[in-house]
Structures are given as C-alpha cells and as structure tokens.
Amino acid sequence: MIKNKKKEAMKTIGTYICLIVMVVISVFPILWMFDSSLKGQSEIYTSPPTFMIQHVTLENYLRVLLDSGIPRAFLNSAVISITATSITVVLGCLAGYGFSRYRFKGKKALYVGLLYGQMMPAVVLIIPIYLVFSKIGLIDSYFSLILPDVAITIPLATLMLKGFFDGVPIELEEAARIDGATKLGTLCRIVIPIAKPGLVSVAIYTFLSTWEEFIFALNLTNSASIRTLPIAINMFKGEFIIDWGAIMSSGAVISLPVILLFVLCNKVFVKGLSEGGVKG
C-alpha cells in the first residue's frame, strides 16, 4: 500500500518535471526576446550572454516606437488583418452554412476543391498573382494583401464553420422558419449564436494567420505606407549590421497583441479547435 502510494507520488513528480521542461522549451525563446529587448547596446553584445540585466533600459523600444517604420506598419497590419478576418468570417459563415444545410449539384466537387485550397502552397500562387497584380496596377495597395489573405484563410474557415453548423439541431431553424424568418435571418439569429465558440476560434485562427502572413506581404508591397509588420521588422537588418536590440523590441511589439488575444481567449479557442477543426 505504502509502496503504491510512493509509486504514485513518483509518477506525479515525473509528470510535473516533464511539464516544466516542456514549458521552459516553449517559453524560453520568448522570454529571451523580452530580455534582450530591455538591454542596452553595450550589454546586448556581451559574450557570454547572461539572462540577468544590469541596466534595464527602454532605449530599444523608444527607437522602435519613435524613430522607425514600425508604428506605421502596425497600423497597416491592423487594418489588413482585421479587414481580412472580418471578410473571411462572413464569407466562411455563408459558405459553411451552405455546405452544412443544402444539397445541390456539384457540392461534393466544391467541397473537395475547398480541401485542396486549404493545402495550396502560397509560394505556388505568388508568381502568377504577382504578374497579374503588377499588370493591372494592384501591387502595393491594402487590397493586394487583403484579397490573398482572405483567399488563403477561407477554405479552413469554411470547413471549420461547416463542422460547427452541422452540430446545430435543424429543428430550431424549422421552428424559426415557420415563424416567418428568412433563411439569412435564421442563420444570423439562430445558428450563429449557438455556434459562437466556433466562430470565435475561426476568427482567432484567421487573425493569427493574417497577422503573420509573410510571402504575399514580401512580394506584393514595397512602400512603407502599405508594408506590414513581418516585413517592416527586416529593415533593422542591414547588409552587414543587424540591430538586434531593435529587432527584439519590435518582435515584442508585434507578438504582444497575438499573445494577449490568445491568452484571453485561450479556453474558447482550444475548445472550438478541438471540436471543429481537429476532425480535419
């Protein structure tokens, strides 16, 4: 009996040691980013590096926030990500509802097409999109990033939302229809409120992917007034000199919104993702 108890205690200790190791591996690089961002120029370039900071300074942040393209890029990123996420969620809701509730010709083919769309390599799309956009003068506009962002996030959003809508009992809608609601009205007033956790996870997922979108932003923009954060951070990288302090503090500025969003909505997000998206 005592032996069993001891064995159990050992197992519990082992489990927590594993968990701590996992957390350290996950979180350490992020902490190191914040740590480095608070070091002065002379301290950041010391060898060997230390985790303790002798003089905590905000000079990197001041340089990034007052004297660089990061604030403007932050605005650009926010406009593009929020617009793209809103469009994706609305179009994804409509399409997910269509797939979930209706039967029509070519439905299966479209569904399979959507699944392929989800897998499409961005690098395959970028060349033709670049050639077409530069021909019709769309390069370097908000639109040139929002459109691809919406397109690459729609397939997964639709598939996830279809999964959530499948779980909403159809009887509720029938009752609403009898009471005279339109199809769109039923979707907005009955189905969407029930599938709200799903909607939230789709919105977060979409926002995270548009916030970090890189390859389209790299090739379809070139002026500072359109440039997004993942591209703007590269301007601290010169031919020979890299301003690591500025990169780490802009990294912190860029990550903070998504980290906060994730920590605050973590419960709904994980629940939504495990119920809807994980099925595949």
Binding site: L91, A95, G98, F104, L114, M120, I129, V132, V150, K183
Partner: peptide
C-alpha cells in the same frame, strides 16, 4: 440557395487560387 450561400467564397477562392494555379 445553397449555391448562393457558397458563391461569394467561391469567387474569392477561384480568383486567387484556382486561376493563379
């Protein structure tokens, strides 16, 4: 109606994915 619900998403995906491909 089903087609109508899907159409907007379809147009975006067709123009930015299918056509470039």
């Amino acid at each position: 109606s089903g087609m109508l619900f899907i159409l907007p998403a379809l147009l975006v995906v067709a123009s930015v994915m299918l056509f470039p491909l």
